[in-house]
């Protein structure tokens, strides 16, 4: 399938976290554990896919000057729908992620894909792009969350493998910056080798 690369691009070449460095706020704030990172990634992917699809459909009809307000309205609508759905069916996750669910509206990844991809491509391609970038984002967040959880609480996906505490700084704010920084170094190394 020739369209497969729309999905894989989002994973490595256009990885939103390590290459494009977009959407840093949720990346740093919600990755205190692997599960939290995974949930945040999935929530963002939901909005990303739907907004990509809708924007690719309406883009040809929207006058150029009101493009951005229209996109923001569409994105904000899906975020509100997501908020309501999460409150209803996954209240625990909604509470943990808190402020960062409404803040998906201003996540540069979502508006970035709308403006940079969806308004120039068809529905199918935009949906695949949404899935690819969404998966890339989810994977990055899960990995950061996993590293912080292993170092900070001595557990992985909630499964505890040491007794007592880990290096607490890693679950707190500084750990987020440090882990992301060092993971970026590894990613750069990997890209340089290729």
């Amino acid at each position: 399938m020739s369209k497969w690369h729309f999905v894989t691009d989002g994973f490595v070449k256009n990885n939103p976290t390590f290459v494009l460095v977009l959407g840093m706020c949720p990346t740093l704030a919600t990755t205190t554990s692997a599960i939290n990172g995974l949930e945040m990634g999935l929530a963002t992917m939901f909005v990303l896919i739907l907004s990509n699809i809708v924007i690719s459909l309406i883009a040809p009809k929207v006058p150029d000057k009101v493009r951005i307000p229209v996109y923001i309205t569409v994105i904000a609508t899906f975020v509100t729908v997501l908020q309501l759905l999460m409150q209803a069916y996954t209240p625990a996750a909604y509470e943990t992620l808190g402020l960062f669910i409404p803040l998906i509206v201003v996540n540069c990844i979502v508006l970035g894909r709308a403006e940079g991809f969806a308004n120039k491509h068809g529905v199918g391609e935009s949906a695949l792009d949404g899935i690819g970038v969404g998966l890339g984002f989810t994977a990055s967040l899960t990995v950061i969350g996993l590293v912080r959880e292993i170092l900070g609480s001595g557990s992985a996906f909630g499964w505890k493998f040491i007794s007592g505490d880990g290096i607490l700084a890693f679950v707190m704010a500084p750990g987020a910056f440090l882990v992301l920084g060092f993971l970026m170094v590894l990613f750069n190394k990997y890209l340089a080798k290729k």
Binding site: K61, V62, P63, K65, V70, T73
Partner: peptide, 14 residues
């Protein structure tokens, strides 16, 4: 083509 950015179009669209 994208619709022209006339005032009427913009207001209508928004």
């Amino acid at each position: 083509m994208a619709a022209a950015s006339t005032l009427k179009n913009m207001v209508l669209c928004l």
